[in-house]
Simulated scan of single mutants.
Amino acid sequence: MKPFSGWAGRALVLLLLACPLLAQAFDLEQLGAQLAKPAVVRGPFIQEKHLRALPQPLTSRGQFVLSREHGLLWQLHSPLQQDYRIGDQGIARRTPQGWQQQPGQDVAAQQSRLFLAVLRGDHAGLADDFELQLSGDAEAWQLSLTPRSRLLQQIFSAIHIQGGALVERIELAETQGDSTLLRLPQSQVDDSLSEAERLARAP
């Protein structure tokens, strides 16, 4: 009788074929490294706020600049103009008197910190507050977040993120039935901030 014949041989072949697939499985470490690699990511954003009381979503548009070193600059262009700076120190809003720190416990602040962690690929930080479930591969992936903490459970019921080389879509489902959809349709990477972007961050 020849070795590895019959069902045993077929099982061995299937196992050998599966090994490269298992080795190439796309995981959270790889996703984090992929998203954290660019020094700068910039592009337009479209944000839709879906409220139960309104038949149409509230839509806002603007530009964002994510710097690995400096955090996130969020420039709202419509329906009003307003700049936000989001970093490890929290969220600040630009006023005629300069940048002013904002309260850290409201929904906007929670969303801002979440956006920063997601765009940075900070899966370790996200895992402190959420159960993470990743599917897909490096070119087309989906990440689902389920809140762990009681505070976040009072705000979000689930968060779904999709992307490829960069984050392309973030959907936040709120506990009370409202939701927010953020689309980043034309993000681009760069090695450094432009002069205008550096000035926009200045105190």
Rank of each mutant, 00 (worst) to 15 (best):
R93W: 03
P57L: 05
Q63T: 06
A109I: 09
D88A: 11
L73R: 10
R42I: 00
I46V: 12
L76Y: 05
R61C: 08
R52V: 12
Q82L: 12
R61E: 13
P57D: 01
A109C: 10
L114Q: 00
G43L: 04
V40W: 01
T95E: 14
G104Q: 15
P103V: 01
Q110H: 04
Q105V: 09
L76S: 09
V40A: 04
D83M: 13
G71K: 07
G104Y: 12
L73I: 04
W74F: 09
E69D: 15
R42A: 09
Q89I: 05
A108W: 03
R94T: 03
R93T: 06
A36H: 05
V107G: 10
I91P: 05
H50L: 05
P79V: 02
D88N: 13
Q102P: 06
A108N: 14
R52E: 11
R68C: 04
D88H: 11
F45Y: 13
Y84G: 11
A36R: 04
R93S: 07
W99D: 01
L58M: 12
T95F: 07
R85T: 06
R61L: 11
A109D: 11
G87Y: 01
E48C: 00
Q97A: 15
Q75F: 06
L66F: 11
E48D: 10
E69N: 14
L73C: 08
A53Q: 12
L51D: 00
T59V: 14
S78C: 07
E48N: 04
Q100W: 13
Q82E: 15
Q56M: 01
L72Q: 05
V41E: 08
H70I: 10
F115A: 01
L51S: 02
Q101A: 15
S78L: 08
G43E: 04
R42P: 07
P103M: 03
P57K: 02
I91D: 01
D106C: 04
F64A: 10
E48H: 02
F45E: 06
W99E: 01
R85C: 15
V41H: 02
I91K: 12
